[in-house]
């Protein structure tokens, strides 16, 4: 039973990383719009994190499946599917030459994704807490982890 809380902590770490990556991209687009970034920098920054984000999200999804969390798996399936189709149609990378044409759409998808990940975050955290209550040891470790996570993600921003 001990591995369950650990698993949920892994989930929450992954989730926070996803949130961070997405927020990072979103910030990039906002900066581009405000002219703090030029399209060249933006595309190199965003493109460097897109594939990791897709991989992480895929792992996130598959891990739910492997560990038998059907409900969470089904929930995480749509974003995974979306990522997969983007990737397969080679549309996942930002095209430097046309950034401004897709700027608004890209921002919107980032916002939606952020929303989705936040929902996941809520779910994962509640599950983590629930799992934590079964293990006194972990229940007092948990807040520490949470803090740590927060710090890393904040730093990243």
């Amino acid at each position: 039973m001990a591995w369950d809380p650990i698993l949920w902590i892994v989930f929450s770490i992954m989730n926070i990383t996803l949130l961070g990556l997405n927020f990072y991209q979103f910030l990039g687009f906002s900066d581009l719009e405000a002219d703090y970034l030029n399209p060249y920098e933006l595309s190199s920054r965003v493109n460097s994190v897109i594939v990791p984000e897709y991989l992480l999200q895929g792992a996130f999804c598959i891990l739910f499946l492997v560990t038998g969390h059907w409900f969470m798996f089904l929930l995480s399936l749509p974003p995974a599917y979306y990522n997969l189709t983007r990737y397969l149609s080679q549309q996942h990378r930002i095209d430097v030459t046309e950034v401004f044409r897709v700027l608004n759409a890209e921002k919107k998808t980032r916002i939606i994704k952020l929303g989705v990940y936040i929902v996941f975050f809520g779910l994962v955290i509640t599950r983590t807490v629930c799992a934590g209550t079964f293990s006194a040891m972990l229940s007092f470790l948990f807040p520490n982890n949470e803090e740590l996570d927060f710090r890393t993600s904040v730093l990243e921003f």
Binding site: N38, P39, V99, L103
Partner: peptide, 11 residues
């Protein structure tokens, strides 16, 4: 929006 042969450097 801008249309033609060029690249936008900022908005």
């Amino acid at each position: 929006t801008y249309h033609g042969n060029f690249m936008l450097r900022s908005t």
